[in-house]
Simulated assay, not measured.
Amino acid sequence: MKLQWLLLIGLVFAVIIAVFAVVNVDEVPVNYVFGESEWPLILVILASALLGFLLSGVLAIMRNYQMQRKIKALQKEMAVKETLIATQQNEIGEYQKAGVVPDAQIVTSEERTKEEI
């Protein structure tokens, strides 16, 4: 449903730009850094709209790529933690079968970093 609204808004925006461009067909000077030329205003408007669309599309693709990389990294981290949880649950099950009650241990982040070093 959201995609349909986006397409509808994009279509309305494109029609508005097209009507605005067709109404403005006069020649206008376009100043470049290295020179100047006369272009029909319709081309200037359409080229500006196209460049804006392309720029926003490229930025959206880059953002999407970054988010996909972040999702993959988080999925890997989640898989590692799920494996750790499963291992710990198996250890708890073995302790319970053997009737051993291990001492409760509280591991803080400081102790964990000391053990990892």
Rank of each mutant, 00 (worst) to 15 (best):
A49F: 12
K70D: 11
K81F: 04
E38V: 10
L6S: 09
G10N: 11
Q66Y: 06
N64G: 10
V23A: 08
Y32F: 12
N64K: 09
M78G: 06
V80R: 10
A18H: 10
G52H: 15
R69T: 10
T113D: 12
V22I: 15
I85K: 15
G35M: 04
I71F: 14
A104T: 08
G99H: 12
V23R: 14
A14M: 14
F20K: 05
R63H: 05
Q66A: 14
M67E: 07
M62P: 00
W5A: 02
M78H: 04
Q66L: 13
I92L: 12
M1R: 13
F34N: 11
A49G: 08
N31A: 08
I17M: 07
L84N: 09
D26H: 14
L54D: 10
K81R: 14
L74Q: 14
R112W: 01
V107E: 03
L55C: 05
R69C: 06
Y95H: 11
Y95V: 09
S37K: 06
Q89I: 05
D103V: 03
V15S: 01
V15I: 13
I61E: 00
F20I: 01
R112H: 10
R69W: 01
V107L: 06
M67Y: 01
I45V: 13
I61Y: 08
F34D: 14
A104D: 07
A21F: 07
E38G: 11
K76T: 01
M1T: 10
W39T: 03
N31S: 12
T108A: 10
K97P: 00
K114N: 10
V28L: 09
E36D: 02
E116Q: 15
I16Q: 04
